[in-house]
Design a binder for these strands. Sequence first.
DNA 1: TATTAAATGATAAATATTATTATTAAGGAT
DNA 2: ATCCTTAATAATAATATTTATCATTTAATA
Lengths: 131, 131
Amino acid sequence: MRITNQREIILEELRRLRTHPTADELYEVVKRRLPRISIATVYRNLERMSEAGIIHKLENGGRQKRFDGDNRPHSHVFCIRCGRISDVRTVEGASARDLILDSKGFQIIEGGLQFEGVCPSCQDNEKLEAN
Amino acid sequence: MRITNQREIILEELRRLRTHPTADELYEVVKRRLPRISIATVYRNLERMSEAGIIHKLENGGRQKRFDGDNRPHSHVFCIRCGRISDVRTVEGASARDLILDSKGFQIIEGGLQFEGVCPSCQDNEKLEAN
DNA sequence: TATTAAATGATAAATATTATTATTAAGGAT
DNA sequence: ATCCTTAATAATAATATTTATCATTTAATA
């Protein structure tokens, strides 16, 4: 991935913000440094960088996607009312209860595990495509 | 919530399917029994029922939302390629490793905890509105 | 410096979801 | 059983977000 000015500044601003911004929130911030940048560039690069594992894309109850530039292992708590996302630090050896206590004043409604991966049928497709 | 024919059949079909369908997939199935139903009714009722906790709304990497009629405690694994979602049974005393082994042939890329709740500022708003 | 491939900016298009509104249906009151 | 009231529905317009397109620009390097 070529290092462009746009890409660097998008990443810098995303890492600086601790608010898990949406694409358009980040666009507003980046525009102060790059007034001619296009919103499409912001979307495109957030997508590319999250595919590459440089940043993370966060889902949020059907609302706008949010992005996180922090790669240290941690969990999130989602506000079901306003969509805000807050970090939950995952500490070695901490129980789920400990984590919840760390959740910065959120009134927790539910929590659980969630996995991401590649399903068997997509694994098959990828094998076929490789040949 | 009034029990309408549409609502009952949407819930019945969602519970019968084990595929975590999208709103439009479910619409196609329900339409076989109620040919005159509107897609808006399906969306509306899925939303209402998930607010009421009767069913669950699942997010999926910016794709279409999916829905789950199974209320027993369990986790999910999301296919990052095609968007399919599969259940991961959460058994009392099982470790994360055990759960991953139960994930039906998925090649797991990552997993973690996720919480939902109400953030402090929305809690304040709710207190104000109550008065 | 010239070349080439990738990235950008501007905007159109696609997609998913929500809002609107006239009509219909459910459930209780009479 | 019929009427009344309110909520739900169907149809569709509107909105919002995201992605695609394509001519132009830029970065890297030959």
